[in-house]
Amino acid sequence: MDILTIVLVVLVAFLAGVESILDQFQFHQPIICCTLMGLVSGNLEAGILLGGTLQMMALGWANVGAAIAPDAALASVGSSIVMILALEGGNVAVADAIVTSIAVATPVSVAGTGLSMIGRTIAIPMVHAMDKAAETANFKMIEFWHWAAITMQGVKVAIPALALCFVAPDAVEAAMTAMPVWLVNGMAVGGGMVAAVGYAMVINLMASKEVWPFFALGFIVAIIGEITLIGLGVIGVSLALVFITLKEAGSAGSGSVDALGDILDDY
């Protein structure tokens, strides 16, 4: 990679790091991050493909409760850089580069958990500095420490990205071309299944007796290929509205819950 590309790649990684804590503009989501990485390295289309593929796997990745998901920012940044390096020589097919870079980078993103813990600890003395600035109503100083904290979060991802940029492209390319077909195909098969983990996290968070039937409905309706995702969304929203209305009606008219009982009582 030339210097300009490295600078831009590190900048995109910085944004991803910032967003991994803010979770607002979504620069850490694969579909955005990988696309930007592709753009700055001249592999726009490969970046979009990688972003779309990784996004599908990462749909349910969010840290809620005890389950800590792989870090979307590191997975996106890591897989993008590996892919860029692999494509540099021109001897690796884009599809293979995507599959292998995801398989390589996703496990590495486990490091994100550790990095995130470090970042959230380093922020403690920073808010102590804010406390101190508050004593004298020093607005500027409070703002300074807030920006310092967010910069620290960006650097947290930018540094590993910078290090990764200096891996020799030849080595990455050689490793990828040397991979036997079964390994590449096997990683593709694994990648096809990995989306299940994200979905499972969502299911475990939301599932209750009353909403499981909707999962079954969604699964079966999706078999009909003509229904687009937007179509599925429309059906889902309609079902949700109907369900809420019925549930409310059910709890309002308490006498009608046991219809047979009512009839028997009347009899």
Partner: peptide
């Protein structure tokens, strides 16, 4: 109500995503 509605919609869509995007 919002939580219930989101759960219904979410579970429905996830059901669909599992069918279409978990490929084996």
């Amino acid at each position: 109500k919002i939580t219930t509605g989101a759960s219904v919609l979410g579970m429905f869509i996830i059901g669909g995503l599992v069918q279409r995007w978990v490929n084996i």
